[in-house]
Design a protein around this nucleic acid. Structure first.
Lengths: 340, 340
DNA sequence: AAAGTGGCCGAAAAGGTTTTCTGCGACGGT
DNA sequence: ACCGTCGCAGAAAACCTTTTCGGCCACTTT
């Protein structure tokens, strides 16, 4: 009947344990940490005392000596965002395994606030930082002179000496086209989102390159707009008007794809038989709600977070890297490109 | 040309500052902390020395003395979830203002992992905890004997002695009906999600109560299913078959509402002229993508996070509360209930 | 029996900061 | 000229843990 959560973990210190066990603090410390310099019987007494008092060592004091705190800072810029969260989960996952705690900060895209947070994290002596961007476009470096390693995730640092882990958007565009072509499509249009986003440009570049490799011409220019369903509807209507022969539409995001599918249905085209549709991001609330369910390119954000965390570990352990590491993506095939 | 981020923040300690300023560490400390026991000229010298070395005080050492660390733990159970994130943002927001850092932990719904995380947080001497649930249903308490205050957010604790901040789902159901009735609707159906969720039950209860208050009968039984678009489509078809006179459908979530709107369009009913549609959660990617845009009940999650953070502050400062505090919701009116 | 060996434990320092208390010099008042 | 006061600076303790080093004892070896 011992409580898992101690009644008074507050003030109980190693000194108390030592006193109860009738030994010195030094011995108590060694006993609890498995050092070899202590007799089995003594160790048992100390362990029992510690349990009885539900002793929990003060990590602050421990960190002060070790100058390793076992904490890292996770600096994000859009906590509400579609991208930060899975990355954050992956990182939390990779860290959480061992005894690392994660400080979460949201700078909300404000450079001032970001500097402030970095300072606060440094004063808490984090062992490292992961900086998560909200767009794939390069972002300013935190600087080379930080006392701890930094890994940039999703949005790369402008400084090539920093280490950045990003998604291969060009490759994602290529693999999307490859998939569509492999299902026999040849008259492919591309409707995407905000042209100021690096992601839309890179995906389009990859898609066009792959079309070229297959000896195909795109069905009309790439259509940039916004990352919304309504743009998808509008653009799809335009494509159907100008290129009625179209047999596949690659969409810059799942939301755009939803709009496109709506418009296709209203124009009497069936998916995937008349026209195949495909999105990016594999946001399941969109892909699985669609009729038919939506094929999409998964950006593997969680893996990105995990990789970033591992690279940070390596850097903390003295194995720094630099440059941009692009992770590949994966096509998740559903009903919108291959029949039922 | 001084770098905002110091070249060697790593090892510079108060002792270094004191030496450079030609004073003792005690005086340096007092100078930097604005204590009154130091001459203005001396203070200036210390401050200058600190800046020159870009000194950043070691919070660990400081916390060790103060037994306030200025950190709190945020324990969530679905980091990917729709609910945790805004709550987390609100909390981060409320904390971040001052100099509080947030430890983020995701227990992934596993009680063992949760205990583990609590222990880890306590050993890092957090000043308090916020526990965010993934469903509105009550969850087991962490126990009364924790050495720090705890606030439960979204999912209340089973122990009434704990303090829980939740959303008023019953009130949300009522206000939804009130809105529909105020737009002249009288034949109202309710299609909602998973019946095992407290949220669906409570919203339904509130909706039925409000209907009664207005002297109205619901158009058929409440239809429970799942929180998906496809359920919305299926249920809407059933409602139209059995109650063709229906002039409004209240949906248990925005996703369900999207499905319902799809089905209505396919059955030739226009929204909102023939049938008004309304959702819960005000998830903007769904509400704004819909045609017409979707009226929804906003659960004010961010405010919930902020309130939880403030209550935690109060508790840390010695003003604990207990019981369940329900926050009200707010109807966001869009095109699906009132013509554009 | 003296010297050496090994096992076990405790004293003390270290880590960086804040706070309390003591001390020292200058100054005003008588 | 002496005493008390005041302003300012420094020494030291405190927070909690880990680690190094020295010491003690019992035992083995010659």
């Amino acid at each position: 009947m011992n409580n898992a959560v101690p009644p008074a973990a507050r003030k109980v210190t190693l000194t108390d344990v030592a006193r109860l066990a009738g030994v010195s603090v030094a011995t108590a410390s060694k006993a609890l940490n498995g050092r070899k310099q202590v007799r089995a019987e003594t160790r048992a007494r100390v362990v029992e005392a510690a349990e009885q008092l539900s002793f929990s060592p003060n990590e602050l004091a421990r960190s002060l000596l070790a100058d390793r705190t076992g904490t890292v800072g996770l600096l994000t810029n859009d906590l509400e965002g579609r991208f930060s969260i899975p990355i954050l989960m992956g990182a939390e996952d990779a860290f959480g395994a061992d005894s690392v705690a994660v400080f979460l900060c949201d700078a909300r895209g404000d450079a001032i606030r970001e500097k402030h947070h970095v300072q606060a994290l440094l004063s808490r002596r984090v062992d490292g930082l992961i900086v998560v961007g909200s767009r794939t476009d390069p972002r300013p470096s935190l600087g080379r002179e930080l006392p701890v390693p930094v890994v940039y995730a999703y949005a790369p640092s402008e400084d090539a000496e920093d280490l950045s882990i990003v998604v291969d958007n060009v490759g994602a565009g290529r693999s999307a086209i490859d998939h569509l072509v492999s299902t026999g499509r040849t008259r492919i249009a591309h409707i995407t989102g905000d042209p100021t986003y690096g992601a839309s440009q890179e995906r389009a570049r990859g898609a066009l390159a792959a079309l070229g490799d297959h000896g195909l011409e795109p069905a009309g220019e790439v259509r940039f707009g916004s990352w919304t369903e309504s743009w998808g509807r509008a653009a799809a209507a335009m494509v159907l008007g100008q290129h009625p022969e179209v047999d596949a539409i690659l969409c810059g995001s799942d939301q755009v794809a939803r709009g496109v599918m709506d418009a296709l249905r209203e124009h009497g085209r069936t998916v995937p038989d008349d026209v195949a549709v495909m999105g990016f991001d594999n946001w399941e609330i969109f892909t699985n709600g669609a009729r038919p369910t939506l094929t999409s390119v998964d950006m593997n954000f969680e893996r990105l977070g995990r990789v970033a965390a591992h690279r940070l570990f390596a850097a903390i352990d003295g194995e720094p890297r630099s440059g941009i590491e692009a992770l590949d993506t994966r096509v998740v095939i559903r009903g919108s490109t291959v029949p039922g």
